[in-house]
Amino acid sequence: MGTKNKLKALIFDCDGVIAETERDGHRVAFNRAFKEAGLDVEWNIEEYGELVKIAGGKERMKAYFKRYPDIYPPERFDDELINKLHKRKTEIFMDMSAKGELPVRPGIRRIIDEAHERGIILAVCSTSNEKSVVSLLQAVLGPQRLNWFNAIFAGDIVKAKKPAPDIYNLVKEKFNLEGPECFVIEDSRNGLLAAKAAGMHCLITVSFYSEHEDFSEADLVVSSLGEPDLPAKVIKGHQNLDASSIKYIDIDTLEKML
């Protein structure tokens, strides 16, 4: 049981964890990029909820266009066009981030500050484009906190995206860590499966698109990390924790689950 165990690395997914970016950020940026390119494509909230289950923006577009070959002929909607659209979508998303259109989720800054004070390794592992991730972190965390991160792994850095564990395994390799020394904060089943396959602990903060997913393998599932004045709701508890006493998630909470 956990308080003797020390957490060595705190790893964040980005979209849906750091900020509620999928519905109000990436979806909107995709639609603006499609419109600019003169394409009659607009992903509504419900439709994007299905697409978001596919890890990676380029992969999302490929899957969507492939469904309707008569409307989006493969010879035109090829890798070159998809890469071009994705590049523009990334620029739009970065601009949205810089303008502060995507607010940080509760408890994120607080737990990053605490981890930094304790000398815990901080990392981000995201399937999103690296420029999108860095621009969002810069906007919602500020340059000082961004500099505290020991590693940002993003985009196509690994061949197999979540639910494959590859991106989380990179953290273990880079910092010579064992899986149980790491805690991942995720918001999706794909992310949970990736973290668990890497042998890591995983806490889920549900996001707009993920709240109905199956998180049975998670160590803890909460509505958010919470703040002293904005309590987290425990959705699935942990045997080492008294769920009724949890107001917000801090490093001590995580270490009790190690």
Rank of each mutant, 00 (worst) to 15 (best):
D242T: 07
K89N: 08
N147V: 07
R23P: 06
G237F: 01
E46D: 14
K53I: 01
G155T: 05
T21Q: 02
K6S: 13
G25E: 03
K236S: 11
I71E: 14
P69S: 09
A29V: 06
A98M: 11
N176W: 10
D166C: 06
A160L: 15
D229S: 11
Y64G: 02
F215S: 00
G199D: 03
L192M: 04
R118Q: 14
V206R: 00
A98R: 11
E255A: 04
L254N: 01
G237Q: 04
G107P: 02
L137H: 04
D79E: 15
I157A: 11
E255L: 01
K53V: 09
K8T: 03
A29E: 01
F12C: 01
K172D: 06
R105T: 07
D214I: 09
V52I: 14
R76A: 07
D229H: 14
I167P: 00
E91H: 06
E114N: 07
L122N: 03
E186N: 08
V104D: 05
N83I: 01
K196N: 07
K84I: 09
V140G: 02
I204P: 01
G100Y: 13
G142I: 08
K174V: 12
D219I: 05
R118S: 14
I235H: 04
G2T: 12
H26Y: 01
T90I: 03
P165T: 05
F175V: 05
V221F: 08
S210T: 13
Y168F: 13
H212W: 11
L136V: 03
R67Q: 14
E47Q: 14
H86D: 06
D113P: 12
M96K: 00
R118I: 12
L193K: 10
I45C: 12
F183Y: 12
I112S: 03
E186G: 05
H26C: 04
K84S: 15
N240V: 08
K84H: 15
I235V: 11
G57L: 04
F149A: 06
D113S: 08
H116M: 08
S132D: 10
H86N: 11
E130T: 13
D70F: 13
Q239A: 15
E42V: 10
D187M: 02
T21E: 06
W43G: 00
V140L: 05
E186T: 07
F183D: 04
L146M: 13
N44C: 09
Q144P: 15
M1H: 09
K236I: 07
A55I: 02
I185T: 02
L230Q: 13
K89G: 02
V52G: 00
S245Y: 01
E22K: 00
R109I: 14
